[in-house]
Write a protein that binds this DNA or RNA. Structure first.
Lengths: 228, 228
DNA sequence: TCTCCTTATCGTCAATCTGACGATAACCCT
DNA sequence: AGGGTTATCGTCAGATTGACGATAAGGAGA
């Protein structure tokens, strides 16, 4: 199989689809490219995998560099390896999906130009094949909200049912019945852990605060395209 | 970001998790390594991505070479990039999952040593990190049977409800109620298209033959761990 | 040919789940 | 105190589910 002598050399990079929910929109973290090709164009944050570093570790490192935060949910999305996706050389890019709560500031990247949160609905054409990667990431996030507790990754450590519902509404682009959503979400085993505290962020009746539970899979799932 | 001059070189390979259902077991296609390291050990089929070829195309090519069949379902599984997964050099491997109906013969690979179908329950430790890749592939297949029409990829072009049920039973390792399975599966929109023909393969009442429909997602899904 | 065996397919029924939506509860503001 | 707002609980009819009975339609052997 492998023959160490004559393998064709590739560059391997990681690209990050970092999503958050802020100001009523699903936003992605984008950087503006500071060099050719695609100079001045928006792109996904990312960079080379180092020789002694695992690909996963490279993604975590880039994520920390870009957001200034560690501990975010990070998972592999897919690998993109068309021969001509980078005009300069053969680059295979492993894309990762990260979900973040509404972070204080976009954090200026260490190397990249200005980084900022852009609503995914307003993203036009990105550098390289990054538009494709972004939409794959968004679709993955949408799908995962159905059957995993990933929606909570968009919330801070403690959150209310209404905040979680807003996440679902914004990511899915639908509106959900607050009463049915409350019933379902509190009924899913291991999704939410009540802290016992309440909060009154909105003038209405104070809402109970929850922390994410230990469930890895939602059963029953929250189905998209339904009145929930 | 990218700086073409000083990128660290990697070898990029594809590894294939090819699954089929045969003789009452979920089986994977394995090859026996003909060279060091791991000489004589079982491994997943795979090989180098060529310079001018996309990663997806490399996977499809290797799959055709190994099985002698084209047109199988093939999807990206994940990418494995630990620094020391190959003792000789830095190799990043993009793994693919392929599902095949019970193919006539294991087909001797062009370059690899003998290939054969091995029940996944009997697979012990494979070369490299291939055990991990295989179990990721099996888990992906199990999960995808729930909400995609992928079970049909294990069947030939025309199949009966009972054949599809056997696929589910074997892959999930459970036993399903034939009556409820029949009701659900024929109730899912776009999953099955009746051919109008029947077959009597098993002594019992002849079963209607179906072809896979156009549905990409099963709604409602067939939930695992239930009496279906 | 008739009976039995096997598998396919259709029905039934109670328990559960779902979506729609009414009713309260508990806060804020004026 | 009254009105506005959000949270949470309840109710109810319709759909879905799992368990399982009943019937259909073939083959094998008596």
């Amino acid at each position: 199989m492998y023959s160490p002598s004559d393998f064709p050399p590739f560059a391997v990079t990681v690209d990050l689809v970092v999503l958050t929910v802020r100001s009523d929109a699903l936003c992605a973290l984008l950087v503006r490219r500071g060099e050719a090709p695609f100079l001045g164009r928006w792109a996904l944050p990312g960079g080379f995998v180092r020789v002694s570093e695992s690909v996963d570790a490279a993604a975590a490192r880039e994520l920390a560099e870009e957001t200034g935060v560690t501990g975010l949910h990070l998972e592999q999305l897919a690998t993109y390896g068309e021969p001509r996706r980078d005009p300069r050389m053969r680059v295979v890019s492993v894309a990762y999906l990260a979900l973040a709560p509404d972070l204080p500031v976009p954090v200026a990247g260490t190397d990249a130009a200005a980084a900022s949160w852009v609503p995914v609905s307003e993203v036009s054409s990105l550098a390289f094949d990054h538009s494709r990667i972004l939409s794959d990431g968004v679709e993955r996030a949408r799908a995962k909200l159905e059957y995993t507790p990933l929606g909570t990754a968009f919330c801070s450590a403690e959150f209310t049912v209404a905040e979680l519902r807003r996440v679902y509404e914004i990511v899915w682009g639908v509106s959900l019945d607050p009463r049915n959503f409350h019933r379902k979400v509190t009924g899913v085993e291991g999704l939410l852990v009540a802290t016992g505290e309440t909060t009154a962020r909105d003038g209405g009746r104070p809402a109970a605060l929850f922390r994410r539970g230990s469930a890895a899979v939602l059963y029953p799932p929250l189905v998209r395209a339904s009145g929930v």
